[in-house]
Amino acid sequence: MRVVLVIALLVAGVILSLSLGARAVPPAEIWAAITAFDPSDPNHLVIRDLRLPRLCAALIAGVGLALAGVLMQAVTRNPLAEPGILGVNAGAGFAVVLGVYAFGLSGAAPWLAFPGAALAAAAVFLLGGGARAGSGGGATPARLALAGIALNALLISLISALVLMRAEALDVYRFWIVGSLAEAQMRPLLPMAATVAAGVVLAFASAPGLDALALGDEAARSLGTRTGLVRASVLLAVTLLCGGAVVVAGPIAFLGLAVPHLARMIASRSVVATLAVALPLGPAILLAVDVFGRVVMPPAELRVGTTAAALGGVIFILIARRMRPGEVT
């Protein structure tokens, strides 16, 4: 029943996202614009050239960030793990900006998001005590969060330095770096959709292994789980999901933090069920945030990354408050 509600929310988000904006388009005309496209009708042009790409970007980023959040929270056993706050998105963004500004790449630069995300994810996990699992308690919430803000601060400072060092104002990149869906038609949507889809498949494939890991490494091994392989495949899945999301929408926080918690309230606690609910819930919430930002004070537009970050901090506080003192450390 609740899953039906999630899907209804997603459908409503899709329709609202297509019809609302500076030029309101009634739902009937949306359908006509898709099935019987008329290039002389401005409404049809708006739908096909601006709103459909924007919708696709929101779907790709919503799925990618939500599932990445589920995986990161499961593999670190940490309710505050999230690609935005832990600096994985900033790593992807930094790699892209580095490619553009320092190495003069243009077409190939978005692909650098993937090694950037992978390096940042591995770095934050190791710096946050992930390798101390045996003796010191592993990647606890406080450790990971602190490693995340340090990594975020470092990467964002480096991005600012790079952007300032090159005087030519590439506004596209400046806007992209705060997280925005507005320029979606300029992004490589199709390849990123394929990448995120591969990440989704890999996420579901690693889910049983993650359930076993939740029992502890010893127990998981005795059940025949290859713990190293599970962690490696999770890292690869997070890389594909976050990298693809960052390329189409910029670094967006909050979604990867909130969606797994909501999904666990709706589904059972197993990783597969959480992933299955997060799959429609992620894009549904991202669309809701985006639509909110578009209608709250026209004609200006609240960028989705800004709204999401503001919400993300609040959710972060709520989750931190719910933890018992022993869980924090």
Partner: peptide, 18 residues
Amino acid sequence: VPLRMILVGIGASFTLQA
């Protein structure tokens, strides 16, 4: 608890900066 206060502070920074 200092650590909880640090976590809350990190969340608050995020929202305030946004």
